[in-house]
Design a protein around this nucleic acid. Structure first.
Length: 928
RNA sequence: GGGGCAGUGGCGUAAGGGUAGCCGCGGCGGUCUUAAAAACCGCUACCUCCGGGUGUGUGGGUUCAAAUCCCACCUGCCCCACCA
């Protein structure tokens, strides 16, 4: 019966929508606006099922908002600069621009097959000169406002290739292409003053963002309160300043540790120690920061031979270098208090350094003997052996909220040996990349070594097209014509050859969408005044601490440089309060989707022995073995891969046959890979958890799915089959549910009304009720980005309608009205089919310009509901009652319930009535 | 190592502190068919003395009431600055 042909109707409607400019979003001050934004893709080659998973639900939400009466802008573009284009260039001898543009062409076509309401007139591509002219312009503005500066930073340097490598190009300290060693090298680079906005970035009060994102950003910024303390080096005039969050423990500082890169190291090192120090520095240069900061690593370090004087007690303390101190955090030097800091404690134990107890733990009778301690004590207590602050209390609070810290800071400031200080884990934003395929940094280095900006007329500094991509050296630095220029006084000068981090491009793309062809500024203030800020932003949570923090910084810097001034004026002229812009927050609401995963993880291979009961093995011994090829001779038990584990019940695949093994309590579990005593919880079962990636060959191509099922079914499946915020493994076997749903609706509508007359009024009333319950369910779900429950509510309506139609008693008008509403509810999810069936029923084009159905609670109401009678919180009986039942009446009925009475002895202690909220039954809980 | 998140039937998942498992997938039984597919109907957590009892990773706690809130643990996933 179903002659649903998605390949025909989808193309047809996409073409018509395009011809009619149905999704063109234009400024219209008479209508409320809604700027819906989904993260722009990197043009890697093919659209991934993950793009569909991120974008089609976002599209459904944008469509819903449009039907709710908003003027919706939902644009799309490409984040087109980046490393993969260069890799392609090197491997296939193709220009990065050619590769990128070809990919964009292909992906644009794939994106269009989604049937999303993208306004393609607004498309922006970050690698086009018309775009990166403004990326450069932003850099210039930031530089002139002292938000950009030059400083040294560590890079992965390949001596073989004479080039800087990305972290992902470095595998085990070696370049992935040549296998040659990579070293850590200091290089002068461009930074933005990210930390200047650290405190403002900690304020989330004006935005509705997911709690985890706010927590991650807060931790990432890592504000800490403490003090800076200056130590004098014993000989010479040198001073070493340290930052500490625990200045109260200064009396317990028994040595100092400098980062190996600390500038004073060479100067203070004694001749006797020099060889050792140099060797250590060289070794440290080879390790990455993540490796170095791993706390489970054995502590290493070398004594410099020099001593410092502890300013509070004049003690002479040795100065060491060690790689657990980072040059990038604080001052690159620490005072080591082995009593109170675990890392310092381990270091002191390893090298036999002195430990002095400075805190008497809360509730302890005496101060611990440092020689008997097995770990540092970082808790609260009373300060001891601490001179001026002896007896003050450290209560565990941060900064001056701890009395001991407060006393220490006051003392340090009075003695002029230190001062209160705030430190951030956040570091300034290093935007320099020694790469070709990025936006050039519009700076010129003059003959006297100073920098000046490229004048506005010189923007954009365009990337030269005739470069050779060999992977050796920096193509821009090797391009003579590009490098040689003149400065403002006509003297020969050199262009900056670093390009910008691509996060710079993606920090402002949603401004460019407003007016991608605008030539007088990054964006047209007339457009900005209407559309800004972004109302809803959707994308992956993996951007929590990078893109999503950079773009907030960028927006605040733009605000402070007056880039919104004109926009704000226009807002005023149109009666709009510009407060939202003044907050300096680019996106008011953020929601994250999860990831669609693919592939599999194998389970542990086990040998299990014990006692069989039928087919089930009660195992008293389980051993994890290497793989499927190790069956010992004469083995009796179960051997195979664990496919599933629920507590102590294990499903084992033994040569294709499933066996159930129950691991008895106290069974011996042996897992060689996990040291120490093992238990059943550590057994790994088969899981499908891997991320999709080309190298694993488990990427799902949406084009094939669209061809097979149609875009509407793929959209419906992606929205229905997952918790959108979680994502999950790809499982094509689950497509059939949504597929049946779409086909059923098609069949239902094309079959026409089952009854040409008025039908049974009671049935018609039921239909109306279920339709309104569906309006409520779908609206509530879409409002909350809960796409799976939206589809679920529509499937429920399908089931109910099928049952009503089967009676043959549904009237023509009731049926037509039900179909009319159902199609409008489906329009955001399955836009093509909804449009086709809408036209089939003779309603006015386009369904996407219709209003969202209005919910009427009266119409949705049931005549009778079930009163749940509970005793001590357990359901004991049910009684049919009116949904409006009052408390007293409900309690009376509940107490009269026969079954419930069996559980009530004597007088109830308490009776609680829970009113029947929307969609829920009233309840009475009788406590006895 | 640091940070974040998650754990519910065979599977994907639902549940606004208030009857755990909505909606699907799969499976089992049936109808129709020469047969199969499709479609349609029914069943589908465990135990039970048939009264009921148990059950949301484990162990505690708060509450009249906990999948939901709190604490600890176990397991897994994601992010960590030149991948985007």
């Amino acid at each position: 019966m179903s002659d649903y042909k998605p390949e025909k109707i989808e193309k047809k409607w996409q073409q018509k929508w395009d011809d009619d400019a149905l999704y063109r979003a234009e400024v219209d001050w008479t209508k409320p606006k809604h700027y819906a934004l989904t993260m722009l893709p990197y043009p890697s080659g093919d659209l991934h099922i993950g793009h569909w998973f991120a974008m089609t639900p976002s599209d459904a939400r944008a469509r819903y908002m449009r039907m709710k009466g908003y003027n919706v802008l939902f644009p799309m573009g490409f984040d087109a600069f980046g490393l993969p284009a260069e890799n392609a260039a090197i491997q296939r001898n193709i220009h990065p621009a050619t590769w990128t543009h070809a990919n964009i062409e292909r992906m644009r076509k794939q994106l269009k097959s989604m049937g999303a309401m993208f306004d393609w007139e607004r498309e922006a591509v970050s690698s086009e000169p018309a775009y990166y002219k403004w990326t450069e312009w932003f850099f210039k503005q930031f530089y002139e406002a002292d938000l950009a500066y030059r400083n040294e930073a560590v890079v992965n340097w390949s001596p073989t290739l004479q080039t800087v490598l990305a972290n992902e190009q470095v595998i085990d300290g070696k370049d992935e292409r040549t296998g040659q060693p990579v070293i850590q090298k200091m290089m002068a680079q461009w930074f933005f003053r990210y930390t200047r906005y650290a405190d403002e970035l900690l304020d989330f009060s004006k935005i509705d963002w997911p709690e985890p994102i706010k927590i991650m950003q807060t931790n990432w910024i890592g504000r800490s309160e403490g003090a800076k303390v200056t130590f004098k080096v014993e000989t010479g005039d040198d001073e070493i300043t340290v930052y500490t969050t625990r200045p109260d423990t200064l009396w317990g500082a028994t040595f100092m540790v400098l980062a190996p890169e600390h500038p004073l190291v060479d100067k203070i090192t004694t001749d006797a120690q020099r060889a050792q120090i140099d060797a250590y520095k060289e070794a440290a240069a080879k390790a990455t920061e993540i490796e170095r900061s791993a706390e489970d690593r054995e502590k290493t370090g070398v004594f410099t031979g020099a001593y410092a004087i502890n300013p509070v007690n004049e003690e002479k303390i040795p100065i060491w270098i060690a790689d657990y101190v980072m040059i990038t955090y604080g001052t690159g030097a620490i005072m080591a208090v082995p009593y109170g800091d675990q890392r310092d404690f381990e270091f002191a134990r390893k090298f036999g350094l002195k430990i002095v107890a400075v805190v008497k733990p809360e509730g302890a009778d005496s101060v611990p003997n440092p020689d008997e301690m097995t770990e540092a004590y970082a808790g609260s207590g009373v300060m001891v052996n601490s001179g001026a602050i002896d007896g003050t209390v450290h209560n565990g609070a941060k900064g001056r909220k701890s009395p001991a810290v407060d006393a220490a800071i006051t003392y340090l400031e009075a003695q002029k040996i230190g001062e209160e200080a705030v430190n951030y884990r956040l570091r300034d934003w290093l935007i320099s990349r020694q790469r070709y395929w990025g936006s050039p940094i519009p700076m010129i280095k003059t003959v006297d070594g100073t920098y000046e900006t490229v004048p506005d007329g010189g923007l954009p500094v365009e990337l030269p097209a005739d470069v050779e991509m060999t992977g050796f050296g920096n193509p821009l630095a090797n391009h003579e014509e590009f490098v040689h220029t003149v400065d403002s006084q006509g003297r020969p000068a050199r262009r900056e050859t670093d390009t910008m981090d691509t996060f710079m491009c993606s920090s402002w793309y949603f401004f460019r969408y407003l007016s991608p062809k605008y030539n007088d500024a990054p964006f047209d203030p007339e457009e900005a005044a209407y559309w800004l800020p972004v109302d809803v932003y959707t994308g992956g949570a993996e951007h929590a601490t990078m893109h999503l923090l950079y773009t907030r910084w960028f927006n605040k810097a733009m605000r402070d440089l007056g880039m919104f001034d004109e926009t704000i004026e226009i807002m005023h002229d149109n009666g709009r309060t510009p407060e939202e812009i003044m907050y300096g927050e680019p996106m008011l609401l953020l929601r994250n989707q999860g990831q669609v995963l693919g592939g599999e993880r194998p389970g542990d291979y086990i040998l299990a022995t014990g006692r069989f009961e039928g087919d089930k093995l009660f195992a008293d011994r389980v051993e994890v073995v290497n793989g499927p090829n190790a069956v010992p001779a004469g083995f009796e038990g179960v051997f195979g891969e664990i496919t599933k584990r629920t507590e102590s019940i294990i499903q084992v695949d033994m040569a294709g046959v499933n066996h159930v093994v129950e691991v008895v309590p106290d069974a011996e579990v042996i897992i060689p890979a996990i040291a120490g005593e093992n238990n059943v919880n550590q057994l790994k079962h088969h899981l499908e958890i891997q991320r999709m990636s080309k190298s694993k060959g488990n990427v799902v191509n949406p084009d094939e799915l669209v061809e097979k099922y149609g875009a509407d079914v793929v959209r419906a499946y992606l929205m229905f089959g997952f918790d959108w915020t979680k994502g999950g493994p790809w499982d094509p076997s689950q497509v059939s549910g949504p597929q049946r749903w779409v086909h059923d609706v098609w069949t239902m509508v094309t079959a026409g009304a089952p009854n040409s007359g008025g039908g049974d009024p009671a049935i018609n009333r039921h239909v109306e009720r279920k339709v309104h319950q569906a309006i409520d369910g779908v609206s509530y779900s879409l409002e909350r980005f809960s796409f799976n429950t939206a589809v679920s509510a529509l499937m429920t309506l399908r089931n109910q309608m099928q049952a009503f139609i089967k009676t043959g008693q549904i009237g023509k008008d009731a049926w037509t009205n039900a179909m009319n509403v159902m199609l409008r509810l489906m329009a955001p999810i399955t836009p093509h089919m909804a449009e086709e069936l809408w036209a089939h029923l003779g309603f006015d084009y386009s369904i996407h310009q219709q209003e969202w159905p209005e919910y009427d609670a009266e119409k949705a109401k049931e005549d009778m509901v079930t009163l749940v009678v509970m005793v001590n919180g357990k359901p004991r009986g049910e009684e049919p009652v009116s949904p409006e039942i009052e408390k007293d009446e409900a309690i009376k009925i509940a107490l009269a319930n026969e079954n419930a009475q069996r559980f009530i002895e004597g007088e109830p202690k308490k009776i609680i009535f829970i009113a029947g909220r929307k969609g829920q039954e009233p309840k009475v809980n009788i406590v006895v």
